[in-house]
Amino acid sequence: MLSIEKGYGRYGELTVLHDIHLSVSRGSIVSVVGTNGAGKSSLMKFLMGVEIETEGRIWLEGEEISRWPTHQRVAAGMVMVPEGRRLFPEMSVRENLEMGSYTPRARKRRKQGFDFVYSLLPKLKEREKQPAGSLSGGEQQMVALGRALIAQPQVLLLDEPFLGLAPIMVRQVTRFLQELREQGLTILMVEQNATFSLRCSDWGYVLVSGRIVSDGQGKDLLHSRDLRKVYLGV
């Protein structure tokens, strides 16, 4: 449903992504793993069309969106949860969720969206009126996820979803992602922690210095030699 063909990403003179080929099939969870500086966030920015100069082609559900501006991609259902959550700190939880339903398509299904998110994440309803900046890290992560879900995504992009989470939260998030997959959502995540992400992924890619060096079935990739080389330098 989502694929990249011959992708290149540049910041000015510096090329950070080289010859990226990637595809995500509908209803699956795919992870792109790599160490710090491998280009993971750049890959997400590449897909969303922000802050980076791009070359190559991106396909979403059969449509080529390579030259589409960001807001159009979001409106088409490509929703990203950025690294570090990036909530609107002075807005309430509810307002943050409302921003999630900004696109016309999401706005139309706002009520269902809210019902859905509140049913999945009931704590958010409790904290509805609180300014998002005053919540704990884990709660903020929930708001970020809720905000993305309310946008009626076709494919959900997650930038380092497991970053800085306590083990119990890791399990919760994993279960959450799997549940979303059950509901038919397609998920692509970039993550430094290969174990957490590949364990729940159907497919995985390994990113090193902006290049995809190997890929495979989630769990297989986790135990592969290539991965060990990347993370342990063995």
């Binding site: 969303m48 922000v50 802050e51 960001t70 807001h71 979001v74 409106a75 929703v79 990203m80 950025p82 990036r86 909530l87 609107f88 921003m99 999630g100 900004y102 696109t103 999401a106 905000r147 946008a151």
Partner: peptide, 8 residues
Amino acid sequence: FAAVLMGV
């Protein structure tokens, strides 16, 4: 940045 990701 986040606003743009919301489709603004």
